[in-house]
Amino acid sequence: MDKLITCVPGMETFLRRRDLPSFYRFKELNDPSIQPGATILNTFEDLEGPILLKMRSHFPKIYTIGPLHAHLNSRCTNSFEPSDSSNSVWKVDQSCMTWLDSQPLKSVVYISFGSIVLMTHKEMMEIWHGIVNSRKRFLWVIRPNSVEDNDEKKQIPTELTEGTKDRGYMVEWCPQEQVLVHPAVGGFVTHSGWNSTLESIIAGIPMVCWPHIADQQINSRYVSEVWKIGLDMKDTCDRSIVERVVNDLMENKKDELAKSIDEISQMAKKSVSEGGTSWCNMDELIEDIKSMKLKI
Rank of each mutant, 00 (worst) to 15 (best):
K3A: 15
L4G: 08
I5E: 06
C7M: 05
M11R: 03
T13R: 09
L20W: 01
F23M: 06
Y24L: 15
R25S: 10
L29S: 13
P32S: 13
S33N: 06
S33K: 11
I34W: 02
P36C: 05
P36H: 01
A38G: 10
I40Q: 02
F44D: 00
E48T: 01
P50Y: 12
I51V: 12
L53V: 11
R56A: 15
Y63V: 08
T64K: 05
T64N: 11
I65R: 05
I65M: 05
P67E: 01
H69K: 04
H71N: 12
N73A: 02
N73W: 00
S74W: 02
R75A: 15
R75E: 15
T77M: 14
N78R: 12
S85T: 10
N87D: 08
S88G: 01
V89L: 09
K91T: 11
M97H: 05
W99E: 00
S102C: 15
S102L: 15
S102V: 03
S102T: 04
S107N: 00
S107M: 03
S107R: 03
V108W: 00
Y110K: 02
I111T: 09
S112P: 05
S115L: 06
V117S: 11
V117K: 06
T120D: 05
H121I: 03
W128N: 06
W128S: 12
G130Q: 06
G130M: 06
K136H: 07
F138S: 02
V141P: 08
V141T: 11
P144F: 03
P144H: 06
E148N: 10
D149A: 05
N150T: 01
E152K: 10
K153H: 11
Q155P: 11
E159R: 01
V171F: 05
E172G: 13
E172K: 14
C174P: 01
E177I: 06
E177S: 13
E177Y: 02
Q178W: 02
Q178K: 12
V179I: 08
L180P: 01
V181I: 10
V181D: 02
A184T: 00
V185N: 10
N195V: 00
L198W: 00
E199W: 03
I201E: 10
I205Q: 05
P206C: 06
V208T: 06
C209S: 11
W210D: 07
H212C: 13
A214F: 04
R221I: 07
V223L: 15
V223W: 15
V223E: 14
S224D: 10
E225S: 15
V226K: 07
G230C: 04
K234Y: 12
I241C: 11
E243P: 06
V245A: 02
V245W: 02
V246G: 09
L249N: 07
M250C: 08
M250L: 12
N252G: 04
K254L: 09
K254V: 12
D255W: 01
E256M: 15
S260C: 12
I261G: 07
D262P: 09
D262I: 06
E263K: 14
E263R: 13
M267N: 11
M267I: 02
M267T: 05
K269Y: 03
V272E: 12
S273H: 10
E274R: 15
G276R: 11
S278F: 07
W279Y: 15
W279C: 10
C280A: 13
C280Q: 13
M282S: 12
D283T: 14
E284R: 09
L285N: 10
D288V: 08
I289P: 00
I296R: 10
I296F: 11
